[in-house]
Design a protein around this nucleic acid. Structure first.
Lengths: 194, 194, 194, 194
DNA sequence: GATGAATGAGACTTCATTCAT
DNA sequence: AATGAATGAAGTCTCATTCAT
């Protein structure tokens, strides 16, 4: 048996992501995940203590990949504006191509699960290290390229519109073509630039 | 008699809103709603076909009130900029003071329930009537005060950041004081103004 | 529907007693209890928080009845010897006629459930009141009719042999006829009398 | 090789005894026994057909040792009284020092497992051989030292109180010091002596 | 022989919904 | 109209047992 997923754990995570995105946590019985992952129910409990832990594990998987995707092609030799637009563009492209990941995250953050985890990571001291492209970018205020605003507001102006648009895109209410993506990135930049 | 019925129905809706916001749809047994609303379980089924219908009814209640709140004090004699800032300010004040409503909406939209309903209403033809203050505002492009952008992008730049900030506010990650509200509204305006 | 048991709670307790005695706690699925009690599974959880609580409730029911049975016909005007023999006789008759109750108690006391409850009640201060026939009896040492021994030893000499014999009786290894019962009661008395 | 097998089998039996005594049969997963015995789960099934057989094997191990312990130091040249007291003392000392063995036996006998096995062995014809010290002792009636009672009653008066006291001792309700042990043995003797 | 990953039957429990009162 | 006791489908999780390595 040579599955695409090299190990059972990954097969379970992938199946869980699909089901959770499609049906929500509470309409995805563990038995269904097992069927989709082509494993026995009991196997899921070998790899994950319970359903909650599985949900968190899916989050970690999705979030890690998203973090990486966001900073792809971020060239620190470019202007702040160009970097910012690259970042937003990355984000939209990545998530728009991955509706399951986006739906999962939306659901996760607005559930009791995500209320603990949150995107608090952005704001935590220990994540504010120099290697974080965000921080370099938003410290542009010191360089006079962006306004001097509280960090949460930068984040809100960056991620808020993107999330809102992605929802509409997923609903089929709007088509996220390159023009719209470019317009969005520039509008966000205009919101925070000097 | 109809007034008594109205009261009972309202009591149920209110109890449901509280429980749903606090515990989520799936951790709010109908029996618990009944207890909180001080009615019998069976009575809930007299007013609402099933739990799903109740959830949608709560949404309608919350959404209607929100729509009204947003356009409060919108003086069409003011400048587009001032009207826009008033609108965003209304929205933030209203929802920040009503965490239950906000949590409910977040949960509703990112669940299988909301995926159908959506905030599609904003974009539906039949809501694009002249009496809608939004439309007047976003038709400012014709007056040269805001950029000529697709409607969904206006909405994204208006509501996206607000929602993002409100989440952080509810999480306690940020305090939404008047300064921050003002900064947010202006940043959003800068994103779309000419 | 006019059942023998006047209410559902009693029907459940009775069914549970039967099953527990026959198959043990862990081989008596709740679903089976429900079937035997002729109620729905869910109904059991209306009356008892969980299976553990049901087990404890059965114990209370059985133990209460046993306590009453033991002191039946205890005439304090009789001699200590006669009272003692009456007590032991009561106990044997009662439990020998009720194998289910006996099996249940045996199982309960030697399980994690009973380890907490124990027959500690006999030894607890607050049960050592004057209305307790046991205490009056075992305070016979002050009247010179029984030896001056620690209370636990009285209890051991009274109940220990009875329990042991009842086990054999249930196993069919011995027949507890009146002669044997009388011999047992007298042997126990001889063990503690002056 | 056989010595290695023996060790592995013993390790399993010992681990099983500990877990069963501590947690009960049904709260002792085979996997846990394996971990404690430091063997693979599969190995347990090499030595024992299934969990039931393991339970019975533990019983045999514990019971054999107990039988041996009881007749230790039984000097047939001593008086019946002295032999009897030695026997009871042996029993109490042995089991009071081995709470696991005692707990296991209690649980075994009051479970569906023990209902079959029972301590029937005492009463079975084939165990009533002359080499059994019990039989010699209880045939004292023919020598006029003990009353002429049915064998089951002798056993009840001998073992019943001991078991009852040991329970209390394990529960911490009583301390089985030498005085109490002596008093117990004598009380039992008084119950059956002429 | 030894191992432990994999399995699925089956246990406990919850809760939306019904319906007799 | 109002109630809430009763129900059982369905969900989560455990664990004895197997079998490929």
């Amino acid at each position: 048996m040579s599955s695409i997923l090299k190990n059972k754990s990954d097969a379970i995570l992938q199946a869980a992501l699909e089901q959770f995105a499609e049906n929500g946590f509470h309409s995805s019985p563990v038995s269904q995940l097992a069927t989709l992952a082509e494993v026995g129910v009991g196997s899921i409990y070998r790899y994950f203590k319970d359903k909650d832990e599985l949900i968190h594990a899916v989050f970690t998987m999705v979030d890690d990949a998203l973090q990486k995707a966001m900073v792809t092609h971020l060239d620190s030799s470019l202007s702040d504006r160009q970097q910012f637009i690259q970042l937003v563009t990355n984000l939209i492209h990545y998530l728009n191509a991955r509706p399951q990941e986006f739906k999962f995250l939306e659901q996760y953050y607005s559930s009791p699960y995500g209320s603990q985890t949150k995107h608090a990571k952005f704001l935590h001291e220990d994540s504010v290290d120099q290697s974080n492209p965000f921080i370099n970018l938003f410290s542009g205020s010191q360089k006079g390229t962006i306004k001097d605003l509280p960090l949460p507001l930068y984040l809100a102006m960056t991620f808020g519109p993107v999330i809102f648009l992605l929802r509409d895109s997923l609903s089929g209410l709007v088509t996220l073509d390159n023009t719209l993506i470019q317009q969005t990135a520039e509008a966000s930049w205009n919101a925070i630039k000097v």
